[in-house]
Design a protein around this nucleic acid. Structure first.
Lengths: 215, 215
DNA sequence: TGTACATCAGTGAACGCGCGTTCACTGATGTAC
DNA sequence: TGTACATCAGTGAACGCGCGTTCACTGATGTAC
């Protein structure tokens, strides 16, 4: 009875027709993913977590691939947000901005390891889906633009600048992936440092990955 | 009948007692892994592929975790071999040797993407198992030694050198992981280049990730 | 304002599937004597 | 050389489980009149 009245108070939609089930399912799916990992992710688990019949997700997403695709696309938005967030509180020069972007990349991965792996290493989402490929391209374009601001040339026409794009991407990605694999902190004394010191090490590594030619 | 006599000819052990089933299972498991991916890997699939009862693998590995752990450990051996192979045909100076090691890292990943992911990104193998952690540490020690040859100091006592270790590892790992995710070739014109040109780009990126101080 | 009806979100029972695990077994091998 | 026996690798039937999918259904909503 208490539960019922609470439901009524907190949400007029908590009835037979949920009203906001799609968003609820996405949120439940993210928790499911974080707790079980991509390998053990299941639609039934998501439905259970959302407190809904196991057949309900099909109405909104068709199958697990559809759900995971939207989840990954949504992940890219927050992936970019994490980078923007770091950039806002960093110095305005082009190199500091690139380093900040890389730190945001690592922030996102360590905060959402399973989601990060879903976005970059899983076969389950449909990478050719518009929502997903568009979101992923947006993130890539930001990197290209960061490099252009450092080099002063367009990576799409300057091969040397595109090499810098690859280098910056690979270094941020490598640090992020090794971090969530638990490899860096154990072997490299990284865990003996404060978060600020860690950031400084990462920023140093990121910046040096870019050729040292002045703008 | 033909099959039977063939069996007799090709292997005296192809009888009730297989004789070499453990090795056969490992080989079948690798194929299974490569074709199905870590997510869909199953013991029954391996047994079927090896032409053996589905309960047989338990005799040798206990469960899927045991099999995958040995598979990963075996993977590290070949991972190191791929790096040694590149180093043998590279110039002897310390920087070229490091670059060669990185190229071997990428070679292995692109040749065995699922196995690489099993080794670096899966929760299924038992990372605390002796065979596995020892094999992984061996690979790490090789990298540490490569850096020591460049810097002239021991990374375990010189923080700046350990930063180089992290940097070199991250760049090779990032390139490798992005390659097998199919990200680099599409976006960065890498596929327009010959394999030798790709190697040159990668080697350039790897070497520049190391601080430029002379030995 | 009220009634009828189409639409659609969500239900829950049922299905078949592949999985890991168990267990009594069978057949080959090696060793003792 | 031959026999008896312990050991162990591999079998195959059986089990319970969670999964995705299907489908007839129910209950709420919105709209036409």
């Amino acid at each position: 009875m208490i539960e019922l009245s609470t439901k009524r108070k907190t949400s007029r939609n908590a009835r037979y027709h949920h009203g906001d089930l799609k968003r609820t399912l996405l949120s439940a799916a993210e928790t499911e993913l974080a707790e079980k990992g991509v390998e053990a992710f299941s639609l039934r688990g998501v439905a259970k977590r959302a407190g809904v019949s196991h057949a309900a997700p099909a109405h909104h997403f068709g199958d697990a691939c559809g759900l995971l695709t939207e989840l990954a696309a949504n992940g890219y938005e927050r992936f970019i947000e994490a980078q923007v967030c770091r950039q806002k509180s960093a110095p305005g020069d082009a190199r500091s901005q690139l380093a900040a972007s890389g730190l945001g990349y690592i922030d996102f991965a360590t905060a959402n390891p399973a989601l990060f792996r879903l976005m970059f290493a899983s076969e389950r989402p449909d990478k050719s889906a518009d929502v997903l490929s568009r979101a992923a391209n947006l993130a890539f374009d930001r990197l290209v633009s960061d490099i252009q601001n450092i080099k002063g040339t367009d990576p799409y026409t300057d091969q040397s600048a595109m090499t810098d794009v690859m280098s910056a991407w690979a270094i941020a990605h490598g640090l992020a992936d090794l971090m969530i694999a638990g490899r860096l902190d154990r072997a490299t004394f990284l865990r003996d440092r404060t978060p600020a010191e860690q950031d400084a090490v990462f920023a140093d590594i990121i910046v040096r990955a870019i050729g040292s030619q002045p703008q």
